[in-house]
Amino acid sequence: MRRFEFLIATSCEAPSIESLNELLLGKGNIKSYDHLNGLVIFETLQTASTVESILKKRFSKVKLVGQSSESLIQAAGVAIIGGNKAKGIVRLLEDENGLNIEGTVSGLEKGSYSVSINEYGDISNACLSTGNPVSKASEETPCGILGQVESDGSIDTKFSLNSGRLSIMECIGRSLVLQNETKKIACGIVGRSPGVSENNKKICACDGTVIWEEQAFGPYAVAPPSET
């Protein structure tokens, strides 16, 4: 079971618990709700992007600000990735089923891309300095390769992967890389993501302007342009 804390920004009129439950239609259970600050905690088996998309049907601004699971490992990770054209956000959360990876990336051309955790949390020379996918002794396929993503060339490519070969603590501090058959397309350093009720950023009570990093990555470290 996963727990997600969302900030719901409205025009100063907070939704009711009843209206949120009706909107979710069985996709999650509300564990707590802070009407004053617009913070609501859901417990669900769904992915964060599924809950977010449901909420966005009703509210203009919705932001995931914390995540955790029932796993003994409560850490979660996030990577803001960038390249020549591609940019996006990828979140990592470990639960009883392994490492769950959710991403939204814009600017990808149609094709297949591998998603990997690479050796070094170093983007000083763009994606070239991230090293190779993490590998353990005697592995035929590096455990750092998390899976494949198919893009149809749409504005946003959304993906959800699962891997039982790496723990969240083996990812934090390293780099997350998207690569096609010939080169690394986008990358970013995996940082620790706030857990539920750990994000204490100050926000505007009406629209939460300063916390919407998917809309403007400004305060976050984006990888410099990758090699051409």
Rank of each mutant, 00 (worst) to 15 (best):
M1N: 13
R3T: 14
I8T: 04
C12D: 13
A14M: 11
I17D: 12
N21L: 08
E22F: 09
L23H: 05
L24H: 05
L25R: 15
L25D: 15
G38C: 10
V40A: 04
T47F: 02
A48M: 02
T50R: 05
E52C: 03
K57E: 15
R58K: 15
R58Y: 00
K61G: 06
V62T: 08
S68D: 10
S68Y: 01
E70L: 14
S71I: 05
I73Q: 10
I73N: 11
A79G: 08
I81Q: 04
K87F: 10
I89Y: 04
R91M: 07
L92W: 04
L99P: 03
N100L: 13
G103E: 04
V105H: 01
E109H: 10
G111S: 05
Y113R: 00
S114K: 14
V115T: 05
Y120H: 15
S124N: 12
S129P: 06
N132Y: 12
P133G: 07
S135V: 12
K136W: 05
A137H: 06
A137M: 07
P142I: 12
C143H: 06
G147Q: 07
Q148M: 14
V149M: 03
V149F: 01
E150V: 12
D152V: 06
G153D: 05
D156W: 02
D156Q: 08
T157H: 12
S160T: 14
L161F: 09
L161H: 11
L161A: 07
S163W: 05
G164E: 12
I168P: 07
G173E: 08
S193I: 00
S197K: 15
E198W: 05
I203S: 10
G208Y: 03
G208C: 02
I211T: 12
E213A: 13
F217N: 04
A221V: 13
S226M: 02
